[in-house]
Write a protein that binds this DNA or RNA. Sequence first.
DNA 1: ACCACCATGTAAACGGTTACATGATTAC
DNA 2: GTAATCATGTAACCGTTTACATGGTGGT
Lengths: 185, 185
Amino acid sequence: MDTKTLCLGVLTSGDRSGYEIKKVFEEAFSHFFAAGYGSIYPALAELARQGLVGCTSVEQEKRPDKKVYAITPAGRRALVEDLARTEPRHRLRSEFLVLMYFAHLLPPRRVGEVIDGMTAQWQTLLDGIERCDADAKLSPGLRFTIGYAQTVLAAARAYVQSQKGGLLTEIEALAADETPAEAAE
Amino acid sequence: MDTKTLCLGVLTSGDRSGYEIKKVFEEAFSHFFAAGYGSIYPALAELARQGLVGCTSVEQEKRPDKKVYAITPAGRRALVEDLARTEPRHRLRSEFLVLMYFAHLLPPRRVGEVIDGMTAQWQTLLDGIERCDADAKLSPGLRFTIGYAQTVLAAARAYVQSQKGGLLTEIEALAADETPAEAAE
DNA sequence: ACCACCATGTAAACGGTTACATGATTAC
DNA sequence: GTAATCATGTAACCGTTTACATGGTGGT
């Protein structure tokens, strides 16, 4: 499953331009599937070439032209087939947790800053998601993924905040062990 | 941050072969940073080329030869610098949540199976992690990341199980809306 | 003045995944 | 016999990320 599939999926709920599709990625998918213009525009071009989406140029006043994409019946079939075939993976790639794993190799001050930074980032994500939540009439799928994000991010935030002090104490103790000269002063 | 950095990191706690490094990835990093032989072996070759690790061939009885890698002082410096430079990202790519988002396009039976499959996968991950946990004398970083995984996976599992019934009901209702002919029979 | 937003794209670089290739040992 | 474990690697493919390229509008 790649950006092409997600673009098709977004178009099932209405015609949109590449720019608008990017917005949907940011608002609805940002916490579990990221994509930038560099993958969205080529994906739409390829989908158009395969006849899975149609494309109409729309002139606008005081704005650049838009290319509005619409899913075709063939596109809808391809999407459903793709979703049916996809096996559900769930992969995290976290430089944050790598840094925590090697916390003893970092200055303790930085470890604290990294934790606080991550907490703030998660808060921002939650705030963005909450804005979606305020809109009425969410699809069942969106409600499910929003709830997932709220549950998991809240748990993650609570965990790292609760462990911050202990981790800092431990790595400071390790640092003191390695330079006992200072302790003797 | 890439596989090279993680390999250097693994070697700070002892000399290892590529095969053994892969084991560490599976046991300690699997839930936040995956890597296969296809990225580990080339990473080690490149690190050796740069003089950041040393490599010794070890003959074994009744086993193929091993290439044991050891981090060099230059490697240690490079690692610390890299960790200092790395900004803490945390990205999820989840086909599972994509499927949930588009649940209304799937047969309800499959949605249930996908949720149960994911729950089972998370349970397996937790079991693997618990085995680590049993070992005494964990580094602070490992303890932190293990606790993180336990907290977050438990929250995720509880959430999807609690929502399963509701989601299925909702998408069945939607399917009935689209084919009212059946309801009239 | 400057920044954010609207709007679309390309090209190279980078890195990871997957499949292929080989082969012995040990346990069921 | 069959599968898992030990052990190392390569090469093609795939897809994302990043930087580049352009340019008007609207608000502070």
